[in-house]
Nucleic acid binder design. Structure first.
Length: 768
DNA sequence: TTAGGGTTAG
């Protein structure tokens, strides 16, 4: 730390070398200013500037120093160039080099490497030619920069040529080639180069460790690591981060212990890796002890990497306040990674409003910022918001595979097939390579939207499949009546060595239940090791639908786990279908206690009594419902039309197109009545309004949605030719016709079911 | 001042 009593220029200059933070640099600057720079302003400014890159000073500060120098010399230019190069500010680098030339300062051995690194891809070869003409290829710094640039731009052959034409080959040249080949993903050539090296040094070995980790082969990296004749802290760090990046956090932590036991001193990079490996454990106590260890060693520094890793660790352990403290204290050393870590922390905790506020305030957003926010919405069930944000994203950043996985998931949850298909188009147009989770999301989207054939096709074409892939397809098959195929898929996944999990069995049981496969369902159920309460609920549903109500009731009575509302709900539904008042009463009684706020249970029981013509009991249930103050929850429907999602709410009297919608509905309803169908009251605005005056929910969300679709372009003529009006109910039929005639896919989703209409066909499914 | 290591999204 510079002391204020220092007065001589030499003292202050040597103090600059010890400066560790930007704050200290500014302090030194102020002191020097007090002494009028000891009469040597240029020397001072250049000296201060030289430290800006290392201390990550703000761009404006560095620029001010540079501009204040009366006639910047080569050293000032080089410092400024190095600063811009570190920021990745390529155009500033290039314009500064032009300015140097105008000042009569041609690029030298310091400037050429920076220029090479920042040159545009087309400019590299001419630049290389110039370097050759000037004889600079004898300079190892320049030569290495050129080799590195060629390799990084995917031209390892050019790098090889430079290597072979070098007047004398140093270890650095060999190493540049080894890492160059790794950079191009050429394992074989990197290995050949490494084996051919006359004198390998620790850098060569470390490059091999890193290379194997980068291609996802940490085991091979470990073999190299174990064979190393000597290791530096960088070698350890390479192996540690290799484990961490391949998801082997435990192996990383174990290696860290070995490292400390072997008395290798961890540096800041080590700590960054270890802290991030700890984050994945979500273990706050361990996080705290790690911070204590850091404090004990005096390692809590201003290093933004370490700060961000700590921030992320706290955020992942659920200690958002601590994370925010670090974030706020970081001030201007915050970078996009810290912002992103903070945003995803809030998303993880469901604080979407704060996350969004940060997202909107963030100075420079990258694709990860967008992905964090979009997936935050998806994970919290705000699928519409996720799609809205995705639409806004396209103007700023290109989406990648992670983006598309979230978007497809949102489309699946919403039943938005059209949007999902457009997402699939974007993937192929932009040549986005989907990973496993992206493919899974695509299968999920098609499954949930009822396009089973496409779900099947994507599933077949996937390079690898995991339990999630199978579950997505099985669930889709289950919901759309392909029970037998779902059961066959269970066999296939076992053959492929993928273990089914509880979701798989839920899907299979649902498939059997919906597909009337009671015997197979029983067989599968008995094969589940320890069925959860959800599996029991499915099984009760299966038996109930199959009419085996006594077996269902027996299963409930003998369950080893406490039944939840889903179990009794299944029993109640079955009792309604098969008119079993006794079991219905039993199930309803339990349900009234388990979920007193659920109006549906009262309604079902009332219907069971009504079917048995026990009107007094019906009345009693209605009274009980009123006494307990239960109200039916507000139903919602979504319609996707021409790529837009339109949402409708039951009881919504303020829809802007309400009158027009009901005009169309009434027209349609009258035609249906004329054809002999019993259309209920809610097709005419007058009658809906009467119901609403009596305090009833007259406006049905699904009916509004249908009217909206009709209004949007139903060909009236089609309505008359429809014969079979009762397949799926009045509303379904209306939309089926529109879908058939217009060739459009239309998805209607209400709070309990989704309905997917394609080419005059319709698939319906419960969602869970 | 060149060759090897670091934080964020699913």
């Amino acid at each position: 730390m510079p002391s204020s009593s220092s007065s001589s220029s030499g003292d202050l200059l040597s103090a600059a070398r010890r400066v560790r933070t930007f704050g200290q640099l500014k302090q030194l600057h102020a002191q020097a200013l007090q002494h009028a720079f000891h009469g040597q302003p240029n020397q001072w400014l250049t000296h201060l500037l030289a430290h800006c890159a290392r201390l990550r000073a703000p761009r404006s500060y560095a620029r001010r120093l540079f501009d204040a120098a009366r006639s910047p010399d080569a050293r000032a230019f080089t410092s400024m160039l190095r600063f811009y190069s570190l920021l990745g500010a390529r155009s500033e680098v290039l314009s500064l080099v032009s300015r140097m030339l105008r000042h009569g300062l041609p690029p030298d051995a310091f400037v050429f490497p920076i220029l090479v690194k920042n040159s545009a891809s087309g400019a590299l070869e001419p630049l290389h030619g110039r370097v050759l003409r000037l004889g600079h290829c004898a300079d190892p710094y320049i030569r290495n920069a050129i080799m590195d640039a060629y390799a990084k731009r995917g031209a390892p052959a050019n790098a090889r040529k430079v290597f072979e034409e070098a007047p004398q080959i140093t270890a650095a040249d060999w190493n540049a080639m080894v890492s160059g080949y790794w950079h191009c993903g050429d394992e074989a050539e990197a290995r050949r180069m490494f084996d051919a090296m006359p004198a390998k040094n620790v850098v060569s070995w470390t490059a091999m460790v890193t290379g194997y980790c980068k291609i996802g082969e940490p085991e091979k990296a470990r073999v190299v690591f174990d064979a190393m004749p000597e290791r530096t802290v960088v070698s350890w760090n390479a192996m540690l981060s290799g484990y961490a990046q391949n998801g082997l956090a435990e192996a990383a932590l174990k290696l860290f212990t070995e490292m400390v036991d072997g008395e290798v001193h961890p540096d800041e990079t080590t700590w960054v890796t270890v802290v991030s490996a700890c984050s994945s454990r979500r273990d706050l106590r361990m996080a705290e002890s790690l911070v204590a260890a850091l404090e004990e060693r005096g390692m809590i520094s201003e290093n933004p990497f370490l700060k961000t890793a700590l921030l992320d660790m706290y955020a992942k352990c659920g200690a958002l306040c601590k994370a925010r403290e670090i974030f706020d204290a970081m001030g201007r050393s915050r970078n996009s990674v810290s912002w992103n870590a903070m945003i995803s922390g809030y998303c993880r905790e469901g604080d979407l409003a704060i996350a969004r506020q940060l997202f909107d305030e963030m100075p420079r957003r990258n694709v990860i910022s967008w992905n964090s926010m979009i997936s935050g919405y998806v994970q919290n069930g705000q699928w519409g918001s996720a799609l809205e944000l995705f639409n806004a994203m396209e103007e700023e950043v290109k989406p990648d595979d992670v983006t598309m996985a979230s978007v497809l998931s949102a489309c699946g949850h919403l039943g938005a097939l059209g949007t999902g298909r457009r997402a699939a188009e974007i993937i192929s147009r932009e040549k986005i390579r989907l990973g496993l989770s992206g493919h899974n999301a695509l299968v999920f989207m098609h499954s949930r939207c009822g396009s089973v054939a496409e779900a099947r096709r994507v599933f077949q074409e996937m390079p690898t499949r995991d339990v999630v892939s199978y579950n997505s397809l099985i669930t889709g098959l289950a919901a759309h009546g392909h029970g037998g195929e779902a059961v066959a898929l269970l066999r296939r996944m076992k053959e492929e060595g993928v273990d089914p999990d509880r979701i798989t069995f839920l899907g299979i049981l649902t498939a059997c239940s919906h597909g009337g496969l009671a015997a197979q369902g029983r067989e599968v159920f008995s094969a589940i090791g320890s069925p959860t309460v959800d599996h029991y609920a499915c099984m009760v549903d299966l038996l109930g639908r199959a009419g085996e109500l006594d077996a269902a009731a027996k299963l409930v009575a003998e369950m080893p786990v406490a039944p939840h509302a889903g179990v009794y709900g299944a029993l109640l539904h079955a009792s309604r279908i098969h008119r079993r008042v006794d079991l219905g009463e039993l199930a309803a009684e339990k349900l009234f206690a388990l979920e007193p706020e659920n109006a549906g249970n009262y309604v079902l029981l009332a219907n069971i009594y009504a079917a048995a013509r026990r009107w007094e009991d019906v009345e009693k249930v209605r009274e009980a419902m009123q006494r307990s103050g239960v109200r039916k929850t507000t139903a919602c429907s979504w319609v996707e039309l021409r790529g837009e999602i339109h949402r409708f709410t039951a009881g919504d009297q303020s829809h802007p197109q309400r009158e027009e919608i009901y005009r169309v509905l009434q027209e349609y309803g009258e035609k249906m009545r004329a054809m002999g169908y019993a259309i209920d009251r809610s097709w005419s605005l007058k009658e809906v309004e009467e119901e609403e005056e009596e305090g009833m929910v007259g406006t049905h969300s699904e009916r509004l949605a249908v009217g909206f679709v009709l209004l949007a372009g139903a060909p009236r003529e089609a309505i008359r030719v429809v014969k079979n009006l009762r397949i799926c109910g009045d509303c379904h039929l209306a939309i089926k016709m529109i879908s058939k005639i217009s060739g459009r896919d239309i998805v209607v989703r209400d709070t309990n079911r989704f309905h997917c209409f394609r080419d005059g066909g319709c698939s319906c499914g419960d969602y869970w």
